[in-house]
Each structure stands twice: as structure tokens, then as C-alpha cells.
């Protein structure tokens, strides 16, 4: 087990170094960083000083090393446009994105899970047919369209919910939360539904397919032949075996919910990292883009690591085979 985790961490570090290299190349070679900082009036001597201060006169390898070193301590440079430390800009907006992502992930997991289990256990019921048909819509409609549709219905026509922003927020240390105010809760509903709809239908269809497969297995037939109660067969034996493949997808989906919240955040003008990224693309704010790249990569690597460790918790076969132990 430890050996496996250490190996996976080692691999993760390699992945992060590769991503850092790409981010570094983007910053260093996509446009001249000096040009972005200096104006036309900057004197040549000042330029030389700036170059030295930024370390641009040293060999590329050293520059990369210092980029990694600064990255490790959370320093990704100064935003060209805002003239603020990039890390602080991301940290300020991160809570908004995380709250939105977690709310929609929770929504997707709970609803997707319940619907998926229902569809697997009652494959012939009218409700199942209805859910399966509607889920096609969820998979195929683009996010922005769903968002705009929801805004039109609930904000414009009915006027029940706000159409943009996070509502009032409360500061808890460096974390700002919208979940402690009524307007915050009202504001998160529409974007969370929009963001979760695709994941929800995906998870639902996956859980349904996996669970139908598990229900066909001999050990389920054998459990029925032993006269175990229905609930124990469905939720003890079948569901746990269904979870093994579902964990991977659910984990990766959580990553992409955060990473690709961009569209939803734009539609709802949600002040999160995604809209920060969009703005930085529009104004060619390279340090922000690079930092965002590294941040998202880190997120995926960490989630993957957690998923792998979860596998161990769920599946005893891996524990023994990989851990090298025998009983």
C-alpha cells in the first residue's frame, strides 16, 4: 500500500513538473515578458535593470528552476493587467468556484445516484423510461443553453431567482462564502443546476449501466439463492460493486466541474476562477493563464491520487495483490 502510494506521488510530481514546464514556456516565450511590463517610455537602462530583476538574463534552465521554486512557494508573478500577485487573485476567487463546484457535484452525485439506482432496479417502470429519455436531453444540450434557458424561466419570466452574481457574501478569514446568506443560497441554485446537469445525467447513466451489469453477476444470483433480503442484495452487495468503476468517473468529473466551470461562470457572471481565466485570455494576461494551467493540473493530479487510494478502500483484491501481503 505505502509503496503504491509513494509510486503514485512520484508519478504525480513528474506530471506537475511537465505542466510547470509548459506554463513556463508559455510565460517566457509567448510574447516578450519585458514588452508586457515596460512601456515605450522605459529607458534602456531601466529595461536592463528589469531584465536582471526578473532573471531574464540567466540561462533558461536556471529560469525554469527558479520558476518552479517560486511556484512551490505560491508565487506565480504579477498579473500584467491588474498589477497584482496572481496567486492572490486566484485565492480571492477560488472560494466562489469551489462552492459552486461542490454544490453541483453534490447535486450530481445524489440525484444522479438515486436516479441511476432506480433505473437499474426497476428497468421496466414508466418512470425509468421517462428518466432515460429526459437524460438524453441533459447529455446533449450545451451548458450555456441550459443556463440561459434557466435564467429566462426563473429570473426573467417568474422572477424567483437572481440571474447573476453570488449575492451577499460573508468573510471567514481568507474564505468568502455565499452559503451563510439567503441571497447567496438563492444565487447558487441556478448555476449549480446548470453546471451539474451534464454530470448528473452522465453519472446516472453510468451507475445504471454498471449496476445492471453487476446484477447479472453470479454472486448476486447466489445471494438471491441464499434468501438474503432484497435491500441487502441491492444496497449491500450490488451497490458496492457498482461503486468500484463509478469512483473513477465521479472523481474525474469533479475535476472537470471545477476546471470547466468557465462557461457557467460566464453565463451567470459568477465571480470565480473560471471568469478570471476568461478575462485573462481576453487581455492576454499570460501569468494568470499559466497559473490557472498549473492550478487545474494540480487539481486533477490530486483528485486522481485520491481516487486511486479510494480504490484500495473499496476493493480488497487490490490491497492484497499490490501490497504484496498474503494471508
Amino acid at each position: 500500500m505505502t509503496g503504491f502510494v509513494l509510486r503514485r506521488i512520484f508519478q504525480s510530481v513528474l506530471v506537475m513538473l511537465a505542466v510547470a514546464l509548459i506554463a513556463f514556456i508559455v510565460i517566457r516565450f509567448v510574447g516578450d515578458p519585458l514588452e508586457s511590463l515596460a512601456s515605450q517610455e522605459t529607458r534602456l537602462e531601466d529595461r536592463a535593470v528589469m531584465m536582471q530583476r526578473l532573471g531574464l538574463d540567466r540561462p533558461v534552465v536556471f529560469q525554469f528552476a527558479s520558476f518552479v521554486r517560486r511556484g512551490l512557494s505560491g508565487d506565480f508573478g504579477i498579473s500584467y493587467k491588474q498589477q497584482e500577485p496572481v496567486t492572490r487573485m486566484i485565492a480571492e476567487r477560488l472560494p466562489a468556484t469551489l462552492e459552486l463546484a461542490l454544490a453541483s457535484a453534490a447535486l450530481a452525485l445524489v440525484l444522479g445516484g438515486l436516479l441511476g439506482i432506480h433505473c437499474a432496479l426497476k428497468p421496466e417502470s414508466p418512470l425509468t423510461h421517462f428518466i432515460m429519455t429526459v437524460s438524453l436531453v441533459g447529455v446533449s444540450l450545451p451548458t450555456f443553453l441550459i443556463g440561459i434557458g434557466l435564467i429566462y424561466l426563473f429570473s426573467v419570466e417568474l422572477g424567483w431567482l437572481p440571474s447573476f452574481g453570488r449575492g451577499e457574501t460573508v468573510k471567514l478569514g481568507w474564505w468568502t462564502t455565499g452559503l451563510l446568506t439567503l441571497s447567496g443560497w438563492r444565487s447558487i441554485i441556478l448555476p449549480a443546476i446548470t453546471l451539474s446537469l451534464f454530470q448528473m445525467t452522465l453519472l446516472m447513466r453510468l451507475i445504471r449501466a454498471e449496476m445492471l451489469e453487476v446484477l447479472r453477476q453470479d454472486y448476486i444470483r447466489f445471494a438471491r439463492a441464499r434468501g438474503l433480503p432484497q435491500s441487502s442484495i441491492h444496497f449491500g452487495h450490488a451497490l458496492k460493486n457498482t461503486l468500484v468503476p463509478v469512483i473513477t468517473v465521479a472523481g474525474l468529473q469533479l475535476g472537470s466541474v471545477i476546471a470547466f466551470a468557465v462557461v457557467t461562470e460566464t453565463v451567470f457572471q459568477w465571480p470565480g476562477v473560471g471568469s478570471l481565466f476568461i478575462n485573462s485570455v481576453q487581455s492576454v494576461d499570460v501569468p494568470v493563464m499559466a497559473a490557472y494551467l498549473v492550478f487545474i493540473a494540480l487539481l486533477f493530479v490530486v483528485i486522481n491520487l485520491i481516487v486511486d487510494i479510494l480504490y484500495y478502500a473499496v476493493d480488497p483484491r487490490l490491497r492484497i495483490a499490490r501490497g504484496g501481503g498474503e494471508t
Binding site: 453470479d218 447466489f222 445471494a223 439463492a225
Partner: peptide, 22 residues
């Protein structure tokens, strides 16, 4: 369900897939 297991026991062919692996 009160008959299966309690009054009639069943053994299937393939022991490798008859038991819940988890």
C-alpha cells in the same frame, strides 16, 4: 425468500464468481 437458503441451499458452478469479491 424464507425458502431459499433456509430450506433449499444452492451451489453454483463457478466458485470464482459466486462470492462477492468485496
Amino acid at each position: 425468500r424464507t425458502v431459499r437458503g433456509r430450506r433449499i441451499g444452492t451451489v453454483f458452478q463457478d466458485p470464482l464468481v459466486s462470492l462477492n469479491p468485496l
